[in-house]
Simulated scan of single mutants.
Amino acid sequence: MILQQVGGTASSVQMMKWAFLLSCETPSHGGKTFYQFIPYRYGPYSFTLNQETDSLIRNGFLEKGTDNRWKLTPLGKGLDLKLPSDVSKDICQIIATYGKLSGQKLINLVYDKYSWFTINSELSGRRKEQRPVAKKYIYTAGYEGKTVDEFLNLLMESGISRLIDVRYNPISRRYGFHKSTLSRLCSSLNIDYQHFPGLGIPGSERECIGSENQYITLFENYRLNLSSHEKDLANVIGFLQSEPSVLVCMEANPNCCHRNVLAQHLATLIDMPIKHLGYST
């Protein structure tokens, strides 16, 4: 829809910044399922938007030239998008306001208005905020219900510099949370990625778990078995003590996730309080 409004072609920088401004400066924010953004090399960026754009290219709706410009194909131009009226109205407003600005002018405008998104800038002298550094806690976080952009932005805002994945089997249907992808995205943001499958719970042990008593039994068995993973625990303790790190699994509610049991066990071994990121009771 944005490309259709600007004549079918735009640079990747322009598209990313227009989408960001749509999410920040309009009543609809682009809709309930619109993209989230992280601070990246040239300001706000969405890994999810980029991934979906690649999918549109593969399916013949878009072309990407050597000059890094996106262009609608005849197939893409023929799409009849059915967006909510408020979103369509807001897209038109963003293009009317910012549609004639070059990529560089959009970068300058966004940098001036949204200083958080300059923290990872590769442009010399353009960082207007410093990336925060968290105090040493045993942090935990679950990505359930979040896009990978929203989740990684939470970690950066919280001052986290290492992600400790404690899933037994780190796969996900949700883009960005498969081990290989998550590791790559973390690396691009200077977040160290570590995986400890031995500290996870196999999916087979979670089958048919539906009651509170079953969860209590599952987590109690997990707690009792932790002593057999001394090497993994020692490595995790070393990571927690060296820089701000977060134990990550899927469930949003830490009380429904083994990472909370793990955090409580670690708290008996090292003098660090526990803090759950992105979750409030």
Rank of each mutant, 00 (worst) to 15 (best):
Y45T: 04
Y45D: 10
N50M: 09
D54K: 05
D54E: 15
D54S: 06
D54L: 14
L56A: 14
I57A: 02
G60H: 12
G60E: 14
G60R: 09
F61G: 03
F61S: 10
F61W: 10
E63N: 03
E63Y: 00
K64Q: 15
G65L: 07
G65H: 04
T66D: 00
T66Q: 01
T66G: 02
D67G: 11
D67W: 00
W70Q: 00
K71A: 05
L72Y: 11
L72T: 04
T73K: 09
T73I: 01
T73H: 02
P74R: 15
P74W: 09
L75V: 05
L75C: 12
L75I: 02
G76A: 02
L79S: 05
L79K: 12
D80L: 08
L81M: 12
L81F: 09
K82C: 10
S85A: 00
V87E: 10
S88W: 07
K89G: 03
I91Q: 04
Q93P: 07
I95Y: 03
A96D: 03
T97D: 10
T97N: 07
Y98C: 06
Y98H: 13
G99N: 01
K100G: 09
K100L: 02
L101D: 07
S102C: 13
K105P: 01
I107T: 15
N108S: 05
L109D: 11
L109E: 14
V110A: 15
D112F: 12
Y114F: 07
Y114T: 13
S115Y: 05
T118N: 07
N120H: 10
N120T: 07
S121M: 03
L123D: 09
S124A: 14
S124L: 12
G125M: 06
G125Y: 12
R127Y: 09
E129D: 04
E129A: 08
Q130K: 02
R131A: 04
R131S: 14
P132C: 12
V133D: 09
V133R: 09
A134H: 10
Y137S: 00
Y137K: 08
I138E: 00
A141T: 06
A141S: 13
G142R: 12
Y143E: 01
E144S: 03
E144F: 06
G145L: 08
E150L: 07
E150I: 08
F151H: 07
F151K: 05
F151D: 02
N153T: 04
M156Q: 12
E157T: 12
S158E: 14
S158T: 02
S158K: 00
I160A: 15
I160M: 01
S161Y: 07
R162G: 13
R162S: 15
L163P: 11
D165P: 07
V166L: 04
V166S: 03
V166R: 14
